[in-house]
């Protein structure tokens, strides 16, 4: 049970790791390690990216990605806090090709700019939409 936790601590030495359920962990990392953490996790076997998403914490924006291992079970949610008024974070497209769709969706609904994403456009909402509806202060 704690084998995965130890391994995670090894992979992400700079992270605070909490267990959320059985073999699911939440790792809180500093903002500048975002790209590095993704790369390290992928090299360590967490090859399948489940999601890239964000949670509006009112005074900051919590960006997270979820990745899991192929051969063994286990899942880690990696989160970091960024400035809510100017939410910028490096894109993970160079690590996972599939991060692109999640980033587009998160940009559309949350307004997080993923720097380095080749094609960051709105996807679920029409291009002329104003605002990002999943933010807590969005007026509709």
């Amino acid at each position: 049970m704690s084998e995965q936790l130890n391994k995670l601590k090894e992979i992400l030495p700079y992270a605070e790791i909490y267990k959320i359920y059985k073999n699911k962990y939440y790792a809180k990392i500093p903002k500048d390690k975002w790209h590095d953490a993704a790369r390290r996790l992928k090299e360590a076997g967490y090859v399948l990216l489940s999601a890239v998403t964000a949670v509006d914490r009112l005074n900051s924006m919590e960006v997270m990605f979820i990745c899991r291992r192929l051969e063994a079970n286990g899942l880690v949610i990696v989160g970091t806090l960024i400035d809510r008024n100017d939410p910028r974070i490096p894109s993970l497209v160079s690590v996972w090709e599939g991060a692109h769709f999640h980033e587009r969706e998160t940009f559309d609904l949350m307004g997080v700019y993923f720097e380095g994403n080749p094609d960051l456009r709105r996807i679920l909402l029409p291009p002329h939409w104003v605002g990002h509806p999943l933010r807590k202060d969005y007026k509709w």
């Binding site: 998403t53 979820i66 769709f101």
Partner: peptide
Amino acid sequence: GECGYMVVSDGTPKPYRVKIRSPAYIHVMS
């Protein structure tokens, strides 16, 4: 595929954030 929900709860009767991970979205977007 993997149908996933990330639920963030803040202890109120309503969830703070629900993230829906749709497998078909990823397949179609790729």
